[in-house]
Design a protein around this nucleic acid. Structure first.
Length: 187
DNA sequence: GTCGCGATAGTCT
DNA sequence: GACTATCGCGACA
């Protein structure tokens, strides 16, 4: 199966399954003439208008418009006025379900990532850091993860990685739902 | 390793 | 005018 079809197949599922299933997938960005790749190890599910913690809970606005697009759309927003955070839109158009990409491990372009981050550790272990590492900004908001500058490539977690579910981070509403998924080497 | 705190500006009430 | 789907730093253990 081609990469595009494999990614679309996953994105057609239910948002919790997508959030879990994205672990091990890779994000490839081709921005500013340079390619960087990160393998995903941390995601969170947001259930659109059904989820008080979702940006889409109160319906469509200027900021969240791309959440209402087709599966595979990239939703990028500014967090705390400083950072960028990226989401993968899933399920049919209009449901505004999405998966926040929170963290990963550098696979390719490590030197470029270190340059963008301005340091050599903690490169991609947080949603703002992940976007900075990949060079993702509001310019990519609304682009397609299937054939845009930032793409989703199928992949598997390294041997020995285990997935755990925990409550989502940094939210006040619906804070009890264990919709954050983290993959770590078995300890 | 954990905890506390300030920075910062767009978005919505 | 209030509230963030965060980060990096310093203090402490």
């Amino acid at each position: 199966m081609a990469a595009r079809e494999a990614a679309l197949d996953l994105l057609s599922g239910e948002v919790l399954d997508v959030a879990r299933g994205l672990l091990g997938f890779r994000i490839r960005s081709d921005i500013g003439g340079s390619v960087t790749v990160v393998r995903l190890t941390e995601t969170e599910a947001y259930a659109g208008e059904l989820d008080p913690a979702s940006h889409a809970y109160r319906g469509e606005t200027r900021r969240n418009a791309s959440m209402f697009g087709p599966p595979g759309t990239l939703y990028v927003y500014r967090s705390y006025g400083i950072h960028w955070c990226m989401n993968v839109v899933v399920e049919p158009i209009g449901t505004a379900h999405a998966v926040l990409l929170r963290g990963g491990e550098p696979v390719r372009g490590r030197r470029l990532i270190e340059g963008r981050r301005g340091r050599a550790d903690h490169l991609t272990d947080g949603p703002g850091k992940l976007c900075q590492a990949l060079g993702v900004t509001g310019e990519q908001d609304g682009s397609s993860l299937l054939d845009g500058p930032v793409r989703l490539l199928p992949g598997k977690l390294p041997d020995g990685y285990r997935i755990t579910a925990t409550p989502r981070i940094g939210i006040a509403k619906a804070a009890d739902r264990p919709w954050r998924f983290v993959a770590r080497p078995q300890s």
